[in-house]
Design a protein around this nucleic acid. Structure first.
Lengths: 172, 172
DNA sequence: TGTTATATATCTACCAGTAGATAGTTATAT
DNA sequence: ATATAACTATCTACTGGTAGATATATAACA
């Protein structure tokens, strides 16, 4: 893993625990073994780092979801696949959804970060809408909003109460 | 409004926009017209301020909800009342739920703040469970978690996309 | 009544630590 | 030679927090 990748990973962990202000160049530099000034070589500003972080997170998330048609062709329910990905984010990483937390902080974020957070949810809603269409739902866009709201909310409450059983209960 | 109340109000606005780190003693002191050092007279530490803020927010929220039995006696659906309170928080204030945002940041918060956030959700779930019981739901505690998750999640997504119609759609 | 004591709420001045950012330098590898 | 990736050193601004002074109002006492 390159230093740049390591910096993004270190930042991701911290943001997913406490939001955009929960990491500093000094902290993540120390963690990967370089000086804070050197972080600016890879990311001119903190906003650049934040935006790239959200962008990569979105790409990784959508990539892990895969293609709705492929999932259906495999006789799986894409909504279950989606739910499972959220479950892993919470249970395996023991952390919030990066863009969920950033989304809640939206109005205090730099513009370019905000844009990437919007991209995450736009793409998620589009994927979910397609999934609900494939499932024969009568109101797929409505169902898409319900799905992502429930999952993000259940994640938040599980974090707030520090008890993952709330998420499990909300998604069973 | 006393200076102390004004400080809490100023802090609340900022926290609901960007989380716990989104306000400083200097900022809120300036807003109410005193010096930052004087804030420490009312709140020894920032954690004390945060905890008192969450405590008051919780009390105000539960107070605004009122009593489930009274609502039923008035031929209203308590879940509708609950939903309406969330809707007002988002549409009128144009801000996140304080404890929702803090809950998502949970692991980066001082202990005494975390405790107050937990209190918010414990009390909310208890209220909702009672409401679902009154509505004759077969699984009231399960329904309570679904209700609060959906509302907090819908709020988050509406903030992230900066479009309240998502909340309206998720709660209609 | 006049004096003293106490509590409240603010102030000035300061501290050590941290924030993101910049300029200019050095080492390495193509 | 050039590009990459780090470095040292430094800057300004801001962070929460502390010490000690000050003004004001009320309460207690002789």
């Amino acid at each position: 893993m390159s230093k740049k990748e390591a910096l993004l990973k270190a930042a991701e962990d911290k943001v997913r625990l406490g939001g955009y202000n929960n990491f500093s160049f000094r902290e993540i530099a120390n963690e990967v073994g370089i000086k804070s000034a050197s972080v600016h070589y890879h990311f001119p500003t903190k906003a650049d780092l934040g935006a790239e972080l959200a962008h990569q997170y979105t790409n990784a998330f959508l990539g892990a979801l895969g293609d709705v048609d492929d999932i259906k062709a495999n006789n799986q329910n894409p909504i279950d696949v989606y739910t499972q990905l959220f479950r892993n984010a919470l249970l395996t990483d023991n952390k919030m959804c990066l863009c969920g937390l950033l989304g809640a902080q939206n109005e205090s974020l730099p513009d370019k970060v905000r844009l990437e957070v919007k991209r995450f949810f736009d793409l998620n809603l589009a994927w979910l809408e397609q999934a609900h269409v494939a499932n024969g739902e009568s109101e797929p866009s409505h169902a898409a909003i319900l799905t992502v709201s429930l999952l993000e909310g259940a994640m938040m409450i599980s974090k707030a109460l520090n008890d993952h059983s709330y998420f499990k209960l909300a998604t069973k």
